[in-house]
Simulated assay, not measured.
Amino acid sequence: MELNIKRVVYHILDTGASEPLLSDRETDLDADLTEYFMTCLEKAFAADDGRMCEFLPDSAFAQELASNQDFIDLSRRIAGVIFEQMLQYPSIPAGDLAVVDFTVSSVPYLGVLKLNYRPGYTHQTRTLGNAQYSGMTPQRTLLPGTPKADEAALIDLAAMRIRLIEKRYEMDGKKDYYLSGRVFGCVQAMPEKAKLKAVCETAAAAVREAYPEPESLDDVPPFDGGTETAVDLMVCNQAVDNTIAVEDVRARMRECYPLAAPKFEQALAETGVAEDDRVTVSPARMRKMSSRSFRTESGIEIKIPAELCSSDEAVEFIHTATGGLSLLIKDVLV
């Protein structure tokens, strides 16, 4: 991920005070702080609990974002709205807020990172007469020791889409989200897992219909679930920085499965996934798709990189006369 931080404004949202402490200038960034915020952003992009959301037509935040070009003033307004929610609903934890102006592969983004306080202790040394005394002092406003935001909003300013990491808190007698509904004015779009599932299942169904005999395809291994595995792998292979562009999948389908491409595009449109959409794939899903495991009745288990399952030069799947399946592994080094 080609991520570049341009500037950061840092605000203190401690509900122990009646007012937030809002900065009126950018934060001085050294190498350590830059790395800290870079890691926070990278983890927020990769988090499995991130939800892609769309701004509602009457979103006050979206309107403010479109009209307010003053980065510092915009950050203060965001901090002020969040602090109002914290005062109204004590269950929302106090914390500091970093508003980040950054780019991802030259695409402009606005990041809102909430670093919730953690209780802890620090040491304290005092002199009592001629003796020194050391002890522990409780602290209630310690920041996270590891660079990870508890709550975050990553706003793609070009596409006007927002990726949220938020938590439910007790509000008006029930647990609810406050960032999406009360701060940013957005609603969850189709979940990323559902998008990926729709793309993979639609592609696999189109291939099965267009090519009813998968053994006729060079890149579909002849084992149970072969078509699904090959198509899933083809889809996930289009990922760049854990993001898949639907247009890349459509182009790959036209190249690999030309007979299935028209049906895929027609069926995909019916799922609600747009042609110019982008799908986030979690690192866990990428790891799962990176290999295939095979187990014999005797308990022998073999794991093969997924991309090699369709390569006759590396492995070969052979149907036996009894209807079973044998695996020939080539060029074994001993």
Rank of each mutant, 00 (worst) to 15 (best):
S180C: 08
A251T: 09
V183P: 05
D219P: 04
A206G: 06
D219E: 08
E228K: 11
V220H: 01
A158D: 12
A203W: 09
Y211K: 06
A239G: 02
A131K: 07
E247Y: 09
A131V: 00
L233H: 15
K193H: 12
A159K: 14
K193V: 12
L259T: 07
K174H: 13
L154P: 02
G173H: 08
G135N: 00
D241V: 02
G185Y: 10
A158S: 14
P212L: 09
S180R: 10
T141I: 08
A251W: 09
A131I: 00
K175E: 14
A261S: 10
Y178S: 03
E170S: 11
G181I: 10
Y178R: 05
A198V: 07
D248C: 14
L259I: 02
S180I: 10
D150H: 07
F184D: 05
V199Q: 01
K263P: 10
Y178T: 00
L157R: 08
A261K: 06
G185H: 07
A198E: 07
M190Q: 06
L217T: 01
L179R: 05
I244D: 06
D156E: 01
E213C: 09
E151V: 01
Y257I: 09
S216Q: 15
Y169S: 07
K167A: 07
A158W: 06
R254S: 15
E213D: 15
R140M: 11
A251M: 13
E228S: 12
D224M: 13
Y133I: 04
V187T: 13
A210F: 05
E201V: 14
Y169I: 06
K195V: 02
R182S: 12
F223W: 02
E247S: 14
R208G: 06
K193R: 13
F264P: 03
L196N: 02
V246L: 07
R182N: 13
L154H: 00
K175W: 06
V187P: 00
G135K: 04
Y211V: 04
R163D: 08
E255C: 11
E255S: 14
G145P: 02
D241P: 06
E228T: 14
E265K: 03
M190T: 05
P214A: 03
A159Q: 12
I162Y: 05
Y211N: 07
N237I: 04
L233N: 13
A131C: 05
V199P: 01
V220F: 01
R163S: 09
K263L: 15
P212D: 07
A194C: 08
T229H: 12
T227I: 08
F223H: 00
A210L: 02
L196A: 00
